[in-house]
């Protein structure tokens, strides 16, 4: 990976940061922050589901672990928010490694993998709803206390900027995945596991690495969510909603692409807001539209929004793939 590879993530960060500081209203700024959080969760999902071809229905397990870890550490041990963030990401990654170790050792993939991840998330949800350490059904509230060390800002633009920087880091991570040997192994496993194994790829370890990275990234989204709303309970942390939104954004945006999850999150949540406005706040209408879009995407645009762009530019530029590559790298 060269410095040139980092150019696109950098541009994305600059554009988003410019947007955050362009005088957005409070509502729009909140929406932007939420988009960044979902995008991070989706970027995590994309590492495993997009590059590795392993669809998880239970990324809430990692999201929730990140969210709970940082809030528990801050409220009961008085740890500062940044240490909480690091601990949340590490613990989320560890949960991912644990689930991955068990599932991949048993050779689970496809529907079986989707179902077992969902089951793990549900176990965590039910357990955290009754365990004392997670505050039971009442959840955990983080007291309002502005300051950089507390990762709470009076001016919410700073929080948006931090979220955007993390999204940029995740973009760079994805770019590395596209360029690195590890990423190539992972894609090889997605395309044909047996062939990859025959060529000497250590399938188990590569998958384990992928789910650990993926879980860490999604756990970071959970940490930011908890930090942004200063609250977490069992439904928010481990509920199916986040597993579904992460999966939606990644698939609609474009599986296995660097910008897919970000584009998907922005497009879906933007559309969700518009639907809510148009329908006058009837509950569920935005998710109804998401469901329809998921089916339409799978049916007609399996490559997601990113493939749409490639199709268009591909038509304008007859040189196709090479033209795209140089354009992306420039």
């Amino acid at each position: 990976m060269s410095a040139r590879d980092l150019l696109l993530p950098l541009i994305a960060v600059l554009v988003l940061a410019g947007l955050a500081f362009s005088g957005l209203s409070g509502t729009l700024l909140n929406l932007l922050i939420f988009m960044m959080i979902i995008s991070l969760a989706a970027q995590g999902w994309n590492i495993l589901g997009g590059f590795g071809g392993l669809s998880s229905f239970g990324h809430a397990a990692f999201f929730g672990t990140g969210a709970y870890t940082t809030l528990i550490l801050q409220t009961s041990l008085g740890v500062n928010a940044w240490a909480g963030l690091v601990a949340g990401v590490l613990l989320g990654a560890a949960v991912g490694a644990g689930i991955g170790f068990l599932s991949f050792r048993s050779g689970l993939k496809g529907s079986y993998f989707a179902l077992i991840t969902l089951a793990f998330a549900e176990v965590l949800r039910i357990a955290s709803n009754s365990a004392p350490i997670t505050g039971g059904a009442a959840g955990i509230l983080l007291p309002l206390d502005y300051g950089f060390l507390n990762l709470q800002f009076d001016d919410r633009r700073w929080f948006a900027l931090i979220a955007i920087l993390f999204v940029g880091a995740a973009l760079a991570l994805t770019r590395w995945l596209e360029r690195s040997r590890f990423g190539a192994y992972l894609i090889a496993i997605r395309e044909n596991e047996q062939a990859a194994q025959a060529l000497g790829v250590d399938v188990f370890r590569v998958k384990l690495g992928a789910i650990t990275l993926s879980a860490g990234c999604t756990a970071l989204a959970g940490v930011l969510y908890a930090q942004n709303y200063l609250f977490v309970d069992a439904h928010v942390a481990y509920g199916p909603w986040i597993s579904i939104e992460a999966l939606f954004a990644a698939i609609v945006g474009g599986l296995g692409t660097m910008f897919g999850p970000l584009v998907g999150a922005v497009a879906l949540l933007g559309l969700g807001e518009i639907t809510k406005m148009v329908s006058g706040g009837v509950p569920g209408v935005d998710l109804l539209v998401f469901g329809a879009i998921l089916i339409l995407t799978v049916a007609f645009v399996p490559g997601g929004l990113m493939s749409l762009r490639q199709r268009l530019t591909g038509r304008r530029r007859p040189r196709g793939e090479t033209a795209l590559r140089s354009e992306e790298g420039a």
Binding site: L247, L287, L288, L294, V298, P302
Partner: peptide
Amino acid sequence: SDNSILLVTLGLSIIIENGLLA
């Protein structure tokens, strides 16, 4: 494709649940 079927039925369940919710 196995994966697509899983996703389509997931989409269907979300449409149904939220249609009923609305």
